[in-house]
Design a protein around this nucleic acid. Structure first.
Lengths: 214, 214
DNA sequence: TAGATTGTTAATCGATTAACAATC
DNA sequence: TAGATTGTTAATCGATTAACAATC
């Protein structure tokens, strides 16, 4: 766990996938694996596997391969999944609700500590471990609780205002499901955008390509 | 709209984003835009904008720029958003429901024609234009209706079986929210994976990087 | 020791950016 | 015509793959 020097984003974005495959192998009690075998399972090249792992230092052993459980733990550490970043859910509609119920945030480095919603009819509902609060309580809540990140599940038209409020409250990290372009206005933020419709449009394009190939 | 010769995936995956920005400009009644200006708004290089658009043929006019509405329409055509691919939703839990309610499939080249669920208590519910059906009806439904794609919103453990059934029914295109690795078993499929937890893990990593930069 | 497999360097490939001639 | 901006070629940069010496 050394050898840092800013790893490229291409590598980082592959780590979760390694982590998933290694977790599965670990559950299946597989003890060791070679870069060749792992590459085969994951449908990538063995070279890439070794290059990727070596960005962080040598986890393997020549002539033997990698210890699945150790490698899994190393990637877990690199990604920081043992953290417990405090996150709030902003917008508890269908989508926000699904997210909150669907994911095990603790395994992903987060802890969901609050949810906020404009629709009064939803305020007071409980959602897993949290209770849905009136959006008006956002400021007081954030002053009483340390918040590391916000999960944005609101429509684009509400995003501009909400961002201003969240930014004022010192929140700089966002998991953004809205189509609002956060970084263009707030450059000192960390944003992971999830644009579901973009991937569906890509699928649309690829369906036709696939048909044409026949 | 010519000059094809297999466009690289890097370009294709940028098209939805161009499409979104152009749609917005179009709504704001902006008539023309230069690659420089568009690049500025989108935070990319003007070179990239021009290279990307030129993969498909010259939409611009020297000394003038690009017509926003025309360019938007061109990208719409390239992506094939005027299609009406018939899709079914497999798994109508929190997540599937949110997806179905959240997105305007018609604008994205699809038409949702059915939803299937194992949980009997949900069968019969209506969801936008569709009615939730018992998963047991999947085969009969797919034989009576042409289905181009399946949106997979089921847990990983159910995915293997379900994929086998869908594949048998001739479905080859998937929007996959499960962590099941479709292409490794079914190589003649078109799959867009959406791994939400992967992006959250990446955010987790980036939060720490951000903190360290201070 | 022999065999296997890593860690790492070098070669290749593809994607991005820069530059500028063509042209509206 | 002069100015602006594209379309396109060439240069650069980064990421991926191949190769192999190091070593368990």
């Amino acid at each position: 766990m050394s050898k840092n020097d800013s790893i490229s984003m291409s590598v980082i974005r592959r780590l979760p996938r390694y982590y998933r495959f290694l977790s599965e192998l670990d559950e299946q009690k597989v003890e060791r694996i070679s870069s060749t075998k792992l590459a085969q399972i994951m449908n990538v090249t063995a070279s890439q596997v070794r290059q990727d792992f070596n960005c962080f230092g040598g986890f393997g052993q020549q002539g033997y391969g990698y210890s699945v459980s150790q490698l899994r733990r190393e990637i877990q550490n690199i990604l920081g999944l043992n953290n417990n970043y405090k996150a709030i859910l902003v917008g508890v509609g269908n989508f926000g609700t699904a997210i909150a119920k669907h994911l095990d945030f603790h395994k992903l480095g987060f802890s969901l500590i609050g949810g906020f919603e404009t629709d009064r009819s939803k305020v007071g509902e409980s959602l897993g471990s949290i209770t849905v609060r009136d959006e008006a309580e956002l400021e007081s809540f954030c002053r009483e609780n340390h918040v590391d990140a916000a999960f944005l599940c609101i429509p684009k038209q509400n995003a501009e205002n909400m961002l201003e409020r969240l930014y004022q409250l010192g929140i700089r990290c966002f998991w953004n499901f809205s189509h609002y372009d956060i970084t263009s206005k707030y450059s000192d933020t960390v944003v992971e955008n999830v644009h579901l419709s973009d991937t569906l449009m890509t699928l649309c394009y690829r369906i036709r390509q696939h048909e044409e190939d026949e």
